[in-house]
Design a protein around this nucleic acid. Structure first.
Lengths: 187, 187
DNA sequence: GTTGCAACCGGAATCTCTTCCGCTTACAGT
DNA sequence: ACTGTAAGCGGAAGAGATTCCGGTTGCAAC
């Protein structure tokens, strides 16, 4: 496919920079499409062509950290990367994903709320494929795909936001529960 | 607290009837607040005072079946109700919840999308409390609350919609994976 | 039957997301 | 450099959710 036009690339950068500035200044709730467009000096149509919708913009803001994370579990050092036992890698993977999710909870919440299905393009599929691979290696006879969904589900942003925010549950308790789940499934 | 005024009760009934008719005729996507209000012959303000927002209206439509379900697992016959072993009850509970969720997938999807936090008032709390009770009975030393969240998470509407719809996964595969999870957690 | 008031009602106004389409521009091929 | 065109652009228009508030009404107390 053709290279991105230079004006498009420039606009993309301006939009992301403006969006980051707005999130830093007013939080995620202040991130309205019209405001981002105005701050970036482009029309709202440009935002939509580039990012699809509000949730697409949120995912784009998350993307940088997501790439780091994917690199870490695909080719980084153990126990996250190759070299450790599948069960240990799965535990490390879910723990790291928990940390990343908590760190960007506001953006993820907005992204999933704006359009729930978008979550399942891109990042989620990569996480699912990785975890299913680990499960399949540890227990070839199991339904690795469904089990991977089940282990990833407790990390959904709305649930974590509820428990960590209103519920007063600490991250470490969630991590411990995940470890127990992995032990039960891959044990 | 005071009894509901008769005009308010009448309007509530008219609104729910109109909403059900619209869902039956045009599906969940046709359920716009203005349209429901017009069909019920009330102003939109009345919808909002009564149901809070779009997701509140969706939950109200789900409510009847939810009450049946709660009665079944709280005081119905085993294995769902009292009388069976905790592990078996937990399996039956998650299976029944899976069925109910699939049955009302569209409404649940809309309800969670419209306001993700609303899910965690009412029905979710009841499910969580019940499952945590069963887990606590089977394994007093475990963190029953967090494990209950983890076992309920795979039943989130967006995930099920994705797997059952686009992914081509059958309900029975999901059920089998849940059974395996329960087996892993409850010994 | 009258009265006081709290709850309720309606729908216009507002707010934000999203779509649409006529105009502009980068850039590959000549 | 010239040109055709596909990609990109902007912002007005459309859609639907949500808020607001002046007017109305059920009903409990007297």
């Amino acid at each position: 496919m053709r290279r991105e036009r230079t004006d498009a690339a420039r606009n993309r950068a301006k939009i992301l920079a403006a969006a980051e500035a707005i999130v830093a200044a007013h939080g995620v709730q202040g991130l309205s499409m019209a405001e981002v467009a105005a701050a970036a000096g482009v029309g709202v149509g440009t935002l939509y062509r580039r990012f699809g919708d509000r949730s697409g913009l949120a995912y784009a803001l998350i993307d940088a950290r997501e790439r780091e994370f994917q690199a870490a579990f695909m080719e980084g050092p153990p126990p996250l990367g190759p070299g450790a036992e599948p069960a240990e890698r799965a535990r490390a993977f879910l723990g790291a994903l928990l940390d990343r999710t908590v760190e960007q909870l506001d953006l993820l919440l907005m992204a999933e709320t704006a359009g729930p299905l978008a979550r399942f393009g891109g990042a989620y599929d990569a996480h699912h494929a990785h975890l299913a691979m680990l499960i399949g290696r540890a227990r070839p006879e199991a339904d690795a795909s469904c089990l991977a969904d089940a282990l990833l589900a407790p990390l959904a942003a709305p649930l974590l936001a509820h428990r960590l925010g209103d519920g007063g549950v600490a991250v470490e308790r969630v991590r411990a529960a995940l470890d127990e789940l992995v032990a039960g499934v891959l044990g």
